[in-house]
Amino acid sequence: MEFRLAISSMIKFTNVSKEYKIDEGYTFFALKKVNLEIKEKEFVSIMGPSGSGKSTLMHLIGLLDRPTNGQIYIANKEISKISDDEISRLRNEFVGFVFQQFNLISKLTVFENVVLPTIYSRRSLDFSPQERTLEILTKFGLKDKINSYPNKLSGGQQQRVAMARALIMKPRLILADEPTGNLDSKTGHEIMMLLEKLNKEEKITIVLVTHEVDIAKYAKRTIKIRDGMIEN
C-alpha cells in the first residue's frame, strides 16, 4: 500500500457525475458521484454489466466527454479548466485508444491508419513517424499488410493495427474498451497478452473495460461498477 502511494496519480475522479437529459423533465444519471484513482503503471480493469455506466466512465477517462459535476484530474491536471484544443492535444499525446469495433478508418491503409495520430501532433516528435510505424507493425507481425485496407484483414489483425495506432505517439495510458469483444477467445487472449506485455515492459498504464471475467483477470486490480456507482 505504501509503495502504491509513492507512484504518482494518473487519473483521479472526485465526486464525478454524468447526467443525460433524455426528455423534458427526465434525467438519466449515468454516473453518480464517482471517486476513483488510477496510478501510473497500473493495469486496471473496469467491470460491470451493460448500462452500468462503464462506457461513460471510459469516455470520461479518455477525455472524449466532460462530466456534469465533479473534477477529473489527468496527470494532476483538472480537465474542466483546459480548452478543447488542449484536451485534443492530451488525447493525441497522452492516451491511446483500443476499441471493441477496432475503429480503423476504412479508406486509409494500415500504414496510414497507424501514422494518423502523428499528423495531428503540433509538437516536433522525437521519432520519425514513418520509421516508428514500420517498426511497430513489424513487431506485431503486420509488415506485409502495411498497404492493405482494414477490410482485407482478420479481426485479430485489425485489433493489432488499432493497438499499433494507440502506441504510435508513445502514450502513458492505454484505454481498451472491450478489446476482445469482437474476437474469438484465442485471438482475444493474444491481444490481452500484448497489453500485459506493454504494461510490464513499457510501463504503460492500462485501463481495460470489459464484462468478461477471464479477460478482467489480466488486470492487477478490478473496479466494479453498477448503476453508475463504484462497488466496494
Binding site: R89, P117, Y120, R165
Partner: peptide, 9 residues
C-alpha cells in the same frame, strides 16, 4: 475516430 486520436476541431 479522428477526434479520439487527437484531431482538433
Amino acid at each position: 475516430i479522428r477526434r479520439a486520436l487527437g484531431a482538433r476541431k
